[in-house]
């Protein structure tokens, strides 16, 4: 339209009959996430362990280097790495994932709620589930890039360097890495969105997420100690997930002892994670509405 022509003209160009709302929301949300310098720095930092673990795997299979380093039992080193390396990679990356979610998650839904933008989204051919899926996809995409994606690359690296049918003998490993990380990032992302929907002040939402996972863990530890029980682990999200990882990996040893120690029964761990997801979804279902009905 020429700049001097100021008459109103309706848009008459191309319009998708069914807009890919979730993808659009995810794209804009990701752009918003990485607009924060702190999140960007954290994300880059979260990529570094991948390089360290990759280097470890490469060193463990480099016989020349091992002999230079005077490692007398390279097979033992490799066996030790194979068993626990991926578990510890998951533990390490889960910490970064938690930090990333704590800083990026609260800024996803709250800005749409603070000034009532949600009706503008939902007044378009967008369903509430598209909105939640878009926001969730943004978080999950960011977390995937520092969790299961590098995890699977490490497995491939290990398999290619080890050769000799290693990959076929350890088919359980990529499955464990993939599923194990999803067991962590999905509830984490859902909880972050739910907190962001209910607590609109970003610093408070970040504090609430820390409270949910860190104070919850401390509370569980106190219950375990004071009541001499293991059921306090129900509020220790990290412990629940590590128990599931250990199960998926076929058991993990730490200084010759089972890790994590004295876990809850496996179905209980899975059920607790499922309940956390359900509660987060219910919280989102209640809050992500165009209009609130006051009873």
């Amino acid at each position: 339209m020429p700049v001097y022509d100021r008459r109103y003209r309706a848009w008459s160009g191309e319009r998708a009959p069914r807009p890919r709302a979730a993808a659009t929301i995810a794209r804009h949300s990701l752009a918003g996430i990485f607009a924060s310098r702190l999140t960007l720095v954290l994300f880059v930092a979260a990529c570094l362990p991948f390089l360290v673990f990759g280097a470890l795997i490469w060193v463990a299979h480099n016989l020349d280097l091992l002999s230079m380093l005077e490692v007398t039992n390279p097979d033992g080193l490799r066996a030790a790495l194979e068993g626990n390396l991926f578990f510890w990679f998951m533990v390490w990356q889960s910490g970064f994932a938690f930090l990333l979610v704590s800083f990026a998650g609260p800024g996803l839904v709250a800005p749409d709620l603070v000034h009532g933008a949600l009706p503008l989204y939902l007044a378009r051919p967008i369903r509430r589930r598209d909105y939640v899926a878009g926001k969730l996809a943004a978080l999950v995409a960011m977390l995937s890039a520092v969790t299961w994606v590098p995890g699977l690359i490490l497995v491939l690296l290990q398999g290619s360097l080890a050769g000799d049918g290693w990959f076929l003998r350890h088919l359980r490993l990529p499955f464990a890495v993939f599923v194990g990380f999803w067991v962590w990032i999905l509830p984490l992302a859902l909880a972050a969105l739910a907190v962001s929907a209910w607590i609109r002040w970003r610093p408070l939402a970040t504090a609430a997420l820390f409270g949910l996972f860190v104070i919850g863990g401390g509370f569980g530890a106190v219950i375990n100690e004071s009541l001499d029980t293991r059921w306090g682990r129900l509020t220790m999200f990290g412990e629940l997930v590590q128990a599931i990882w250990s199960q998926l990996l076929g058991g993990v040893e730490f200084f010759g002892r089972e890790w994590p120690e004295n876990p809850l029964p496996a179905p209980v761990n899975w059920l607790a994670i499922a309940i956390l997801c359900a509660v987060a979804l219910a919280a989102l279902h209640r809050k992500i509405r165009a209009h609130e009905v006051v009873r």
Partner: peptide, 13 residues
């Protein structure tokens, strides 16, 4: 722009 995209307009348009 975001609202336009959510209504089905291509990103550039």
């Amino acid at each position: 722009r975001r609202m336009a995209e959510l209504s089905g307009l291509p990103a550039r348009a």
